[in-house]
Amino acid sequence: MATVAELMRANLLEVFNERDDDRRAKAIAATYATDVEFADPEGVATGHDELNAKAKGLLDQSPGFVFVPDGPVLVNHDLGHLAWAFGPEGAPPVVRGIDVALVEDGLVTKLYTMVLPA
């Protein structure tokens, strides 16, 4: 069973940073509960298919951009926190944010993304 810290890294790097549809789908199945709720300032996506569409849409509209961790994963029991940066590979990020996730039975059940002011 994956740790909270491993799930936080997988969320950022294996799902939201993954441009290959098959690899992203496999990572989603291994990282999130089937009824996961993902909330960001734009709305709420529920379930694997909606979360996959959200990640794919974000990557499709940002060619050449990558997510990178912007600090260590912080864990408090079943809650994980990871700051991130997003921008062109090898260049300063254009946006920063944080992900906060609730984990139950080794899977992310709720994920909240907050975008930090520029």
Rank of each mutant, 00 (worst) to 15 (best):
M1T: 14
M1N: 11
T3A: 05
T3Q: 03
L7R: 01
M8C: 13
M8D: 02
A10G: 02
A10T: 08
N11G: 00
N11H: 15
L12H: 02
L13G: 00
L13N: 02
F16E: 00
N17K: 01
E18D: 01
E18I: 00
E18K: 01
R23M: 05
K26G: 07
K26H: 14
A27R: 08
A27L: 05
I28V: 15
I28Y: 11
Y32S: 06
Y32V: 09
T34W: 05
T34V: 12
V36T: 15
V36I: 15
V36W: 15
E37W: 08
E37L: 10
D40A: 06
P41R: 12
P41N: 12
E42D: 11
G43P: 07
V44A: 00
A45H: 10
A45T: 09
A45M: 07
A45Q: 12
G47K: 09
G47L: 05
D49P: 01
E50P: 05
L51P: 10
K56P: 00
K56H: 08
K56N: 03
G57V: 09
G57T: 12
G57N: 11
Q61I: 04
Q61F: 05
P63W: 10
G64F: 14
V68L: 06
G71T: 11
L74M: 10
V75K: 09
V75E: 13
N76D: 14
H77M: 06
L82F: 09
W84C: 01
P88R: 14
P88E: 09
E89C: 00
G90F: 11
A91Y: 07
A91F: 11
P92H: 06
V94N: 09
V94L: 15
V95M: 15
R96N: 07
G97N: 02
G97S: 03
G97I: 02
D99V: 02
V100R: 08
V100Y: 01
A101I: 08
E104L: 02
D105N: 13
G106E: 04
T109P: 04
K110F: 01
K110I: 01
K110D: 03
K110A: 05
L111M: 11
Y112E: 00
Y112I: 10
V115K: 13
L116G: 00
L116R: 06
P117N: 13
A118H: 14
A118E: 13
